[in-house]
Nucleic acid binder design. Structure first.
Lengths: 211, 211
DNA sequence: GAAAATATCACTATTTTCAGGGATAAGAAG
DNA sequence: CTTCTTATCCCTGAAAATAGTGATATTTTC
């Protein structure tokens, strides 16, 4: 069995070193390339023969979700395990839907990370227990509020609401009628399942809708 | 010069490994103890002769701020460098006020972390540039809103506002008058410098007031 | 080419929030 | 003993948000 070359991507150097150390004693791994941005990963993929990517979700320039989308579109044979600080149901749902091969929270153990790598290299998916739980929650939540994705305009309005603007101020800023803003608000509350703007903004922050 | 024994504390194993790797080639460092909770650090301090602690801020059981307070009270000769994912001005202010010897964000370089360790071991303080900037902001913010600390009751009200309750509902839940709740609200807006409840809740989340 | 999603506008009525005053009592800190 | 902080309460009026319903034009998607 030949060794597999991998890329580890994370914008935090210490994490990069940590993962590198944890994986360095695994026999099945060949060269290890490190990257601090999604862009770098894409470049490395062109230069080297890569079999597996282990990537954090939040990164500057090109984040983990974008990277994941890109990989699954253009380099579908390359496996990818996502790592995340957050394990909220929104993030989890996105990652699974985009087709990641594995998803492990950052507060995992050395053993679990190695297990995840081995499982994925064996052509199976690996998702931590916590992640699976969150995924069930996301499925459950989605049933309650059939469409949780906000439209670009709605996101724009929600962001301005977070900036403490009133409907009138928003209408002036976006050159639209107050009525329209109010309609967007109504739909935002509906889609996020909130009763108040405060709740919607809180939801947006916590579920990573803003970022 | 004798070697210094240190403790590294972080609830994320990968980070622990990363920092360990980064510091392992420094001559001035002796034994390295690892901990995943603040409690463990306190226990290790009793068992061993420790000169420096490098600790993350967010940890379960006893967080970095509590740990810092404890150390500076009972083991004031032990140096402590704080690490944090967040670099918002609230956190920075707290850490500096509590008397940390150093503060470095987690997205720093290997060189900077080593420099921080050397500086602190040389009996000087080390704060990253970003951190210093944030500290200035915190000082500036504080001037604008003389008292940014919310009282326990105000925090309670703010949390319930985040749960989408109206003033009336909060008054019923806390067995107080609606007028009282409104007064608390008014003071919360004043102290946080917000115009709306949404802004106050957002501020609370982002600045780590809720946690 | 039809169906679905998005973005736009309108009206009404009720509830809630915000801004502005002011007041009292208890306890901590100096 | 006085000052500060906290927690409590009260009132008013204007502004804003929410709930309910309905409608139209433009994209996007299938």
């Amino acid at each position: 069995m030949s060794k597999i070359n991998i890329i580890i991507a994370d914008d935090h150097l210490m994490f990069l070193e940590g993962i590198n150390t944890i994986l360095s004693d695994m026999e099945e791994i060949g060269d290890v390339h490190l990257a601090t941005e999604g862009n770098q990963v894409v470049r490395l993929l062109k230069q080297f023969e890569i079999g597996l990517i282990i990537s954090d979700i939040s990164m500057p320039k090109m984040d983990g979700i974008e990277l994941l989308t890109e990989i699954k579109k253009k380099h579908s044979h390359v496996k990818i395990i996502m790592l995340s600080m957050l394990d909220n149901h929104r993030t989890v749902h996105k990652v699974i839907q985009k087709g990641a091969d594995g998803f492990v929270p950052k507060f995992t153990s050395k053993e679990e990370l190695q297990k995840a790598v081995r499982t994925v290299l064996g052509n199976e998916q690996y998702f931590s227990e916590v992640i699976k739980q969150r995924y069930m929650e996301s499925v459950f939540e989605r049933k309650k509020y059939s469409n949780i994705e906000l439209s670009p305009r709605e996101k724009e309005v929600l962001a301005l609401l977070g900036e403490e603007l009133t409907s009138k101020e928003i209408s002036e800023k976006l050159f639209i009628s107050v009525n329209t803003v109010e309609t967007h608000r109504k739909n935002i509350l509906l889609k996020t399942g909130s009763k108040t703007t405060t709740g919607a903004v809180k939801y947006a922050i916590e579920s990573g809708l803003f970022d």
